[in-house]
Nucleic acid binder design. Structure first.
Lengths: 186, 186
DNA sequence: GCGCACATGTAAATCGTTACATGATTCG
DNA sequence: CGAATCATGTAACGATTTACATGTGCGC
């Protein structure tokens, strides 16, 4: 399961469930998500299997935290996942299914409204990712190709987010034109 | 739930669970998937809720089939889903999570091998989608903008598949270069 | 006769979300 | 003192996958 391996990857630097949720929000949001109860439960299972090790720690803010760290066995499982090659078949994009069925609205104007809402949202996400990249570039002189390994790969991931969103924005723009043209032909 | 609405959309033309699985393979594979047991169970639930109507039918090949069709109530539910605007938050791409953690391999050559396998796979998918589009263009003189509504929207979806895959192929190519350059700098 | 595509399902297990419960610290 | 953030969890429910079970018709 992908989530197991994602947690093993994130816990290479010690992290609590709460910390991990924060990283999902910051870094993974454009290609994965998980809720807190699932994260806590999975960490417990990984600990029972000896893939991570956890200990309680006092926190400056709020109650004690339980901090997990990937074990040697966990590292091996992570490497095995990567060595097995790219994993396919999980793709999931509900808004694309919606576009597929847009004819059910039976109304080109409403189809166009849907696509315009989609475009606006995608533009926002694109701007957010671009801002992250620019901030990073400004703060780290090693950016992008002299970065340490972990950051270098994080940047590769971010680049895909940008390229994919650019493509989808271009597509949505094209769709709106095509729908408008059909609308005009009535 | 997205699957409910996808089934309502697909059953606008009568279809059995098996037929629907085939359409997932053919048309939806690049943005959604579902297994047979889930499809059968969901169809039953939708029937109990009056959103689809099912009847048994003799098949030329194999056993009887149960053919479902979206009811008026089902159509209304589908339209409501679309009218509510684009649905976000389901994005899921395990191979991107893998790229994020590729540094765990600790070996640029193996990272490159991973990315090359990814690129090969993506190129295959891109070629398959492009072939579908060309065949379609050759067979239907109305292609693409004079197509009937349902086909027009199916084509919009296919266009996104193409644009997205082109972007990802370009990205993977860029990644391989960057990884090779790092490899050279050792 | 064997394997394949057709066709439908059940059972079990796991994954994932939502609602609920608890309690500390910090800032206004 | 109220709201936000930190921090962890349980319970219940629903979604999804995997393994198993069954049987037909067709082509080699």
């Amino acid at each position: 399961m992908a989530l197991d391996h994602i947690l093993l990857g994130l816990a290479r630097t010690p992290a609590s469930g709460y910390d991990i949720k924060a990283r999902f929000r910051e870094v993974f949001s454009h290609f994965w998500n998980a809720e807190l109860p699932q994260i806590y439960r999975t960490l417990k299972r990984l600990e029972a299997d000896g893939l991570v090790r956890g200990h309680s720690e006092a926190s400056t803010k709020g109650p004690d935290k339980r901090v997990y760290e990937t074990t040697r066995k966990g590292h091996a499982a992570l490497r095995a996942w990567l060595a097995a090659g790219p994993e396919f078949g999980n793709e999931r994009l509900s808004y694309l299914a919606q576009v597929f069925f847009l004819d059910a609205l039976g109304d080109a104007a409403r189809s166009r409204a849907f696509l315009e809402a989609l475009l606006e949202r995608l533009r926002g996400e694109l701007a957010a990712l671009a801002a992250i990249e620019q901030q990073w570039a400004a703060q780290d002189p090693r950016f992008p190709d002299a970065l340490p390994d972990a950051d270098f790969h994080a940047h590769l991931t971010l680049r895909l987010g940008l390229r994919k969103l650019e493509a989808i924005v271009a597509w949505a723009t094209e769709c709106i034109e095509r729908v408008a043209r059909r609308e005009g032909n009535r």
